[in-house]
Amino acid sequence: MAQDDSSNGPGERKPNAAGDADLLRRLGSLDSKLRDVEARKGTVHNADKQKPQMSGIGQAFRLSTEFIAGIIVGGGAGWALDRWAGTRPWGMIVLLLLGTCAGFFNVARAAGLMKSRTDDKSGAK
């Protein structure tokens, strides 16, 4: 004689096939939604500890002045050195040349063609 089992866990109910299928379906959808959220959290955490990525146009604007700024600083420093130490025109020439190289290096580093000073250290500290 089959006896009704009273140990059904929280909430006794009579076994009902249609209700069971519905509940199991909802359990499955909750499971997949939780997994989606976990996956999204994972990707957010991984993109950490690097230099901020600039958009393409941003990079372009940056590069537009990096070269000229080097030349300006070189020329300005050269001119100041000449005024101060009276080394016309050599101060200006040498520092202008160095400034051009610096501008060059600036562009190369900004464009990623050269390793920048702190590239290997990012994330290490």
Partner: peptide
Amino acid sequence: VPIEIISFVSRPISLSVRLFAN
């Protein structure tokens, strides 16, 4: 080293000139 120094000093120059000029 002078090139690196010039490069470093050129940062604020480029920062200000870029914004001003644009």
